[in-house]
Design a protein around this nucleic acid. Structure first.
Lengths: 189, 189
DNA sequence: CACTTTAGAGAACGAACGTTCTCACTGTCA
DNA sequence: TGACAGTGAGAACGTTCGTTCTCTAAAGTG
């Protein structure tokens, strides 16, 4: 019954703490000291797990990718009808936008802040968005929709995220869903 | 025929130089020294025009707002038919995405980087997006479309900007335009 | 010509930050 | 027990950055 955490636990705790700080304040506004304090570890342990802040940033984006993927997938999987699965994506967004600390897409934020200065961040963000695009494309295909529909639905999701973040309201999820319904209907599925 | 610039010229030169640096590198990655060098002035003159970096940031966003507004308006005004005016917005985006140094919407980038830390930046970004939304709403109204169409078209424009920036291609403008055509058609205008 | 004002060039300052180092302490194993 | 590896706490280091200050020379003014 030791209270000493395993290395994996510790790593996770660091990533969780850094994620919250990076997301709510912006990456550049968070020093490694703040991450240390929030994770409740020593600076030495922090640098043992992540040799540089860049490594930590990439790990945080990796966690965000997993959470996003799991969240969207869960919402979509709960629906049976292929056409409704497409719209479930926007229901996930609506839930998310309602979070008290919602501040937009962490990937878009990271890209805007560091994309030009940090190639690894830029590539991680690109990979995340490409993955989501492939996922939407697969849902469209399953629903029997045309390939052109996938990018349109993904653009709606992206736009909803930035709009909701900046406006500070959840309306964008509703509007994006309504638009998606029109596009799906227009595609004849 | 003095070569000495007027105060207004100097101010503009500073804003132009800072805008390019902020946009291409990210605001936090640009020091006041770099702005001084790029503008070809003294640090004293820089701080005389803008007492703090925050003031300069807000001025840069103001310039971006003017350029965006002028660019969109010019593209829309060149079209006569109200329904086609709605789609001209995406043609403007297509032109812009083709710029060699395109790196997404400067407002979205600034919001992601500084929105949580700098209330003035957050408010400036919000005002810019709200202004664009009102503009789109007015175009929709002129075209006889339903009020619900405005937010949908704006979300497409937002999504196209982030998608184009991250993917590094101009495809998003085409996809957003196609989606907009569907939505306009579905609205019966 | 003196005297004041202004402005350029850049050194300097103080804070913040990423990263490393020191030191004391704890547990381990011979 | 005693040498030793590992770790926490945080001081320290080197750099960057926003901002201010100094010094100097030029320009305006009586």
């Amino acid at each position: 019954m030791s209270e000493i955490s395993t290395p994996a636990d510790r790593r996770q705790r660091i990533v969780d703490a850094a994620d919250e700080l990076f997301y709510t304040r912006g990456i550049g506004q968070v020093g490694m000291d703040a991450v240390r304090d929030a994770a409740g570890i020593s600076l030495r342990a922090l640098y043992t797990e992540f040799p540089s802040k860049d490594d930590l940033i990439v790990a945080v984006l990796g966690k965000r990718h997993t959470m996003w993927t799991n969240g969207v997938t869960a919402k979509v999987d709960a629906i049976a009808e292929p056409r409704q699965k497409l719209l479930a994506v926007y229901d996930y967004l609506a839930d998310w936008f309602g979070d008290a600390d919602f501040r937009g897409c962490g990937f878009i934020n990271a890209f805007g802040e560091l994309g030009a200065a940090n190639a690894q961040v830029a590539e991680t963000v690109r990979a995340h968005k490409a993955d989501f695009q492939r996922y939407v494309d697969s849902l469209v295909k399953d629903a029997g929709g045309p390939a052109s529909l996938g990018p349109q639905l993904a653009i709606l999701a992206e736009g909803a995220q930035t709009t909701a973040a900046i406006a500070g309201t959840t309306d964008a999820a509703r509007h994006a869903r309504a638009a998606a319904e029109s596009l799906v209907a227009a595609a004849g599925i």
